[in-house]
């Protein structure tokens, strides 16, 4: 069975002397310190990348993705927090690898007929939403999509699990400028909220639209359908972005 690697799977001695490592962190954003940390932990990133091998992606690509995750981890790690860097890095790197599969996953892992079913469900759902003025039930969607009840459920599961995130995300919104986007969340996009703080490290991995949807759903209490109208996309699309955002937060927030 496939498991997401966790800390136990990756148990290996933390590279280097912990106090030296911490010392390096205190020298950031010094370039040499950053390079030293990256080199020190590169084998660790490669180790994690190889755990995702054999799923249709070249190992070299996975190592590349893991290395990007490692650099993110180095830049975001706060040495004053009571968490080991290897723990933090593992979560960030695995998150990056999972995101990579999620973005690619649609074309790799979802069988063609399931993709087709998902598109039909999506279309039927949008049409019915227009006609009924509310979210339809599965029993209503099934005949319109020409699918059985179970096929609709399967398609919904697939839509949630393998989102077409890369198509939805605004260009350039890849979480690269983390500090900038956090500031934007606090100052421009949303009202500042204490609650937001509890998930702050994780929300930097979300697109602006995902953040907006989370905010409207959980801090403003809007329904998915209300959010759909507000943002101008379908409710199904809201649902997909929402579950995708929650998955990302879960992966990032629990280390």
């Amino acid at each position: 069975m496939r498991r997401v690697p966790d800390e136990h799977d990756t148990a290996r001695p933390e590279p280097g002397d912990p106090s030296e490592i911490l010392e390096l962190f205190r020298h950031l954003p010094d370039h040499d310190a950053r390079d030293s940390l990256a080199q020190e932990y590169l084998p660790f990133a490669e180790h994690l990348a190889r755990r995702f091998a054999g799923r249709g992606e070249p190992v070299d690509d996975l190592v590349q993705v893991a290395s990007v995750g490692l650099l993110h981890a180095i830049d975001r790690f706060d040495p004053d927090r009571e968490v080991r860097f290897s723990t933090f890095a593992a979560a960030t790197i695995v998150g990056e690898l999972k995101r990579h599969f999620r973005d690619k996953g649609w074309s790799i892992r979802v069988p063609r007929d399931l993709q087709e079913a998902a598109m039909r469900v999506n279309r039927a759902n949008s049409e019915l939403w227009q006609e009924l003025g509310r979210s339809p039930t599965v029993a209503e969607v099934a005949p319109r999509a020409g699918l059985s009840h179970d096929e609709v459920l399967e398609a919904m599961e697939a839509l949630g699990a393998y989102s077409t995130a890369s198509l939805d995300a605004p260009a350039g919104d890849d979480g690269a400028s983390v500090s900038g986007s956090v500031a934007a969340v606090g100052e421009d996009v949303f009202e500042v909220s204490e609650d937001w703080i509890t998930i702050l490290p994780a929300i930097t991995h979300l697109s602006d639209r995902e953040r907006r949807i989370l905010y409207l759903r959980f801090f403003k209490g809007l329904t998915q359908s209300e959010i759909a109208v507000e943002i101008g996309i379908s409710q199904m699309h809201v649902s997909r972005l929402l579950s995708q955002a929650l998955q990302t937060i879960r992966a990032k927030a629990r280390m």
């Binding site: 039930t137 969607v141 919904m156 329904t223 998915q224 409710q235 199904m236 649902s239 929402l242 579950s243």
Partner: peptide, 15 residues
């Protein structure tokens, strides 16, 4: 879904 909850509610049960 069999209780005829709307699709968005079904998705939120998953969540």
């Amino acid at each position: 879904a069999r209780l005829d909850l709307p699709i968005d509610a079904v998705e939120e049960v998953r969540v």
